[in-house]
Design a protein around this nucleic acid. Structure first.
Length: 220
DNA sequence: AACCAGGACGTGA
DNA sequence: TCACGTCATGGT
């Protein structure tokens, strides 16, 4: 058993299943993996992914709640909103000028997609969708086994001495995927592992890797 | 008051 | 390719 799997098991035993991705009406869904249930939930995840870029999810929830109260938590309604109204609604999530346009660009793509699963390259071609957002969308909205790397992941792995300071997003992603796939062979099991692992890293890092010096008190 | 948040883009070297 | 500035609100 390699170190990455050891870290996963330790975090899983400590914090349990995280139930990502959370929805506005039903919240987190620990130990339930039959998600998303419908197209609306797929879009809600994608919307949340864009809004949470470099922003706390509690700020994103404010924006999503407001949209929900306006009966605008779906792509058709958002597409028909005046741009200034959309910007105002998502203002608590920060970068509202950029994110409003990112959301509209994603909706254009989403409409053409029908019910197909997008590729990573297609997602990366959308303005506002970078590596982490593409992987988050694939992992949580489309149940594709793509490991998500975020600032917390890099911090944790750096502190554990498992990666180099200047390791790229893609290098870290492939490192994690190859280590995990050495142990997890079943595709469904792999998907759940990727989904839980990223969520567990965020849960753990919020406690030990959000303020400098990073990693103080970390038991890994 | 400074720092960080479930990053991405545009620019210049 | 990559380092750097910019985008913006909100919590600690």
């Amino acid at each position: 058993m390699n170190k990455i799997i050891q870290i996963y098991k330790t975090l899983y035993e400590k914090y349990g299943t995280q139930g990502w991705w959370p929805f506005i009406d039903s919240g987190y869904h620990p130990s339930e993996y039959d998600f998303p249930k419908n197209e609306n939930q797929i879009f809600e995840i994608c919307l949340g992914v864009i809004l949470t870029q470099n922003t706390t999810f509690t700020s994103v929830v404010k924006s999503l709640n407001t949209l929900n109260a306006m009966n605008c938590l779906d792509y058709k309604a958002i597409k028909n909103m005046p741009l200034d109204t959309l910007k105002n609604t998502i203002k608590p999530s920060g970068y509202f000028n950029q994110k409003a346009n990112y959301i509209l660009a994603f909706i254009d793509f989403f409409e053409r997609l029908e019910d197909k699963t997008p590729t990573r390259e297609e997602l990366l071609a959308i303005k506002g969708i970078g590596p982490e957002s593409a992987d988050s969308i694939l992992l949580y909205a489309y149940n594709q086994p793509e490991f998500v790397v975020d600032a917390y992941t890099k911090r944790l792995l750096l502190h554990a001495g498992l990666i180099d300071e200047k390791a790229s997003y893609y290098a870290i992603k492939k490192f994690m995927e190859s280590e995990i796939e050495k142990e997890v062979k079943d595709r469904d099991e792999l998907l759940i592992c990727y989904q839980e692992f990223h969520a567990l890293i965020v849960a753990h890092a919020k406690l030990f890797y959000s303020k400098k010096p990073y990693g103080v008190g970390c038991f890994l």
